[in-house]
Design a protein around this nucleic acid. Sequence first.
DNA 1: TGGTAATTGTTGCTTTTGTAACTAACAAGC
DNA 2: GCTTGTTAGTTACAAAAGCAACAATTACCA
Lengths: 146, 146
Amino acid sequence: MARSDFDLIDFLPYLLNQAAEKSSLGFQAYYKGTYGFLRTEWRVLFHLGRYGEMTAVEIGARAMIHKTKISRAVARLTERRFLTRREDMADRRREVLSLTPLGRKAFEDLCEKAAVYDRDCVAGLSEEEQRVLRAALRHLANIPRD
Amino acid sequence: MARSDFDLIDFLPYLLNQAAEKSSLGFQAYYKGTYGFLRTEWRVLFHLGRYGEMTAVEIGARAMIHKTKISRAVARLTERRFLTRREDMADRRREVLSLTPLGRKAFEDLCEKAAVYDRDCVAGLSEEEQRVLRAALRHLANIPRD
DNA sequence: TGGTAATTGTTGCTTTTGTAACTAACAAGC
DNA sequence: GCTTGTTAGTTACAAAAGCAACAATTACCA
């Protein structure tokens, strides 16, 4: 296979990782500095805020995070009063998680900050480029349109 | 600021991370399974193969990896004979790294596999979408066109 | 019903990463 | 020549992530 023309600099997983890491830095600084959240903690909060009550496994499935990471993130967030667990009486293995008022406040703040931050990220791209970019990323990540 | 219309599902750092993680999995399985490389090790190999001899710091600057990670990756790769270190006599702090024949062979194999893998990644996207995607990612990652 | 398998969530242990301190070498200014 | 500051790379310790085993339920099905 004559592939000597392929340049690793354009290797998609590489480009994606570089862009992901770079674009995460600024926002990470905010939620870490303001709330002391780890990345997984922010993600758990984000999913509960965005989709409503869920169990740990459900969050993990959506966010592609291993359940042990979620377990520990939930433990910390619960301890810090950002969310509560409620036992599902119909299936006592499940613990349904939801945000406390404090958690919702943090979520809403972070959501606003995210909107602004997102704008800065795509500042140099045209509307059309942004559209194509997000669509391609959703496709690559297999994220359904809800 | 009326931003209630912003949906976190489109938050760029999130989309990028999801896409990056998902798209990395398959290739990671290959270099891990075949060579036992960690991600940083593959990256070091990749940069030395793509750009030629470099020092650890230079690799770190290009790849945005902290020097301690590089230090450990280099130690392992050297031990396993994939690369060699040469002291720069003009500046004895610097250690110039380069691939051994074994390292080059691994690099070339991985490079070929990457080309194929890359194709699979973008299989569902049009030529134009691919072009826009890569350009946008390079922009976000601040990767120069070389 | 009873027994095997699957699911939810946690914990212990190992591996990997992050942070800070450190050595060694060079650079710049006086 | 000194002194101070900077740079390359390593190492030690702490934090986080990955992995495997576990208890507690529930599901399946002969």
